[in-house]
Design a binder for these strands. Structure first.
Length: 412
DNA sequence: TAGGCCATCTGGTCCT
DNA sequence: AGGACCAGATGGCCTA
């Protein structure tokens, strides 16, 4: 059988395994091919030596694999097994050789390494190369994972007990960056005076196509749909839209942009970004083909939830307490909002509809205290106050826009 | 139990 | 020659 001395498999130098990989020297190798050309591995832990990784290595090997390893000493069988190793990567077409390229002055590849080497020596070299390559590959993947971890950390939320998958992290980052960039750009336009109050038609066909595709809304698509470059709407005077609601449709006058005394509201295809200069920001997402609401936003204690999240621990609302609690105590991103936010983007990206649940109760809200109607729009003080207060509660606009309930949203 | 996610091994390819 | 990168294969863990 094979040697149990690690040095026999690592006879070049200690640099074979890097020091910073977080792993001890590992050894799992493919020595031969079975009858069906499946690469064979074996675990040297059975040999009484500790060569298996000590952390995060879950790979275990089976006895039947070991049984297929050729007997030690039969170098010809061993070598032919190596040569017969199956390759999983399809071969690519080789580039034509450059006739002007000077020839190498020495033998290369297998011929060179084979020179003056016995088969057993050759196998040692091959194994050590493989070990080094495996170690490098592990380190490379670890660095990639570390980069993903750093990306997770800079996303707006990262609950302690929840971890985005790799693909979720990338998708979430893409959407988040886009939403923020659009917000910044719009704010710049306001500050520079490029945006002037005016109406313009929206390209509903392109908006629909863009929304149905489930693709991420790219900048060009955004401009094409909304012609946002120098057209938007100015501040409304009647307070109708002071509530920071998310829309998947243009606002009442056809614009996708709205500025109020409390911030700005921007429609970006599937995503609405609200930047509130007092009470926090909001990102809302819809599929464009229907609306949906995270069930949790329909719970009876919504009032208390919003009250707590937006206005800290204050129990009553008035203009004074609003200002007083506009400080660091406010919890802008919590577990609940993270899930809603993530779900919103996920649904928008995949064009999925949320299944209705028993928690949907349309009638309950039609005449609710927070229901939105034309009277409210025209300035009923009490209702307006509530609408303003529940700026991330989409229910109150359902009737006004005659749309199905509703959207998912999140406060950031 | 199937499917998703992940870590790891592996050989091929490209480049220095 | 050797390193980086890639993609296929594999098996473990977890969850619905």
């Amino acid at each position: 059988m094979f040697s149990t001395n690690f040095d026999d498999y690592c006879d070049f130098n200690d640099s074979i395994c890097s020091n910073d990989s977080g792993f001890e020297k590992s050894y799992t190798d493919s020595f031969a091919a079975s009858n069906n050309n499946t690469p064979i591995k074996f675990d040297t832990s059975d040999l009484g030596i500790s060569l298996t990784p000590t952390k995060d290595v879950r790979r275990k090997l089976f006895k039947e694999d070991i049984d297929n390893i050729p007997e030690h000493g039969d170098d010809k069988v061993f070598e032919s097994s190596i040569l017969a190793m199956n390759t999983s990567t399809p071969k690519k077409e080789k580039k034509p050789k450059d006739p002007n390229k000077p020839k190498k002055k020495y033998a290369s590849g297998k011929n060179r390494i084979s020179r003056c080497k016995s088969p057993s020596q050759l196998m040692k070299i091959q194994r050590n190369r493989r070990m080094k390559a495996n170690d490098r590959e592990r380190n490379r993947m670890h660095m990639l994972n570390e980069a993903l971890d750093r990306l997770r950390c800079v996303l707006p939320t990262f609950p302690e007990d929840t971890k985005l998958t790799k693909i979720e992290t990338l998708r979430f980052a893409h959407n988040y960056i886009f939403a923020l960039s659009q917000t910044l750009e719009s704010l710049d336009n306001i500050n520079s005076g490029q945006i002037q109050p005016q109406e313009y038609p929206i390209n509903n066909e392109k908006l629909q196509n863009c929304s149905l595709s489930g693709d991420k809304i790219a900048k060009d698509a955004f401009r094409e749909i909304f012609s946002i470059s120098n057209k938007t709407e100015g501040v409304l005077n009647d307070g109708t839209y002071r509530s920071f609601q998310g829309y998947s449709r243009p606002f009442a006058n056809g614009s996708n942009f709205m500025q109020t005394s409390e911030g700005v509201l921007i429609n970006v295809g599937n995503v609405t970004v609200s930047v509130n200069n007092k009470g926090g920001n909001c990102i809302t997402s819809t599929t464009g083909t229907g609306f949906f609401t995270h069930p949790s936003t329909f719970s009876e204690d919504l009032h208390q939830q919003n009250y707590y999240y937006q206005y800290s621990k204050s129990n009553t609302y008035n203009e004074n307490s609003y200002e007083e609690n506009n400080g660091a105590e406010r919890e802008y991103f919590n577990q609940k909002n993270y899930e809603i936010f993530k779900n919103a983007f996920d649904i928008a990206a995949n064009n999925k509809k949320l299944e209705k649940t028993e928690e949907y109760n349309y009638e309950r809200f039609n005449n609710s205290l927070y229901g939105y109607n034309e009277v409210n729009c025209n300035g009923n003080a009490n209702e307006y106050l509530h609408n303003n207060y529940y700026y991330n509660d989409q229910r109150c606009y359902r009737n006004f826009y005659n749309r199905a309930p509703n959207v998912v949203n999140a406060q950031i």
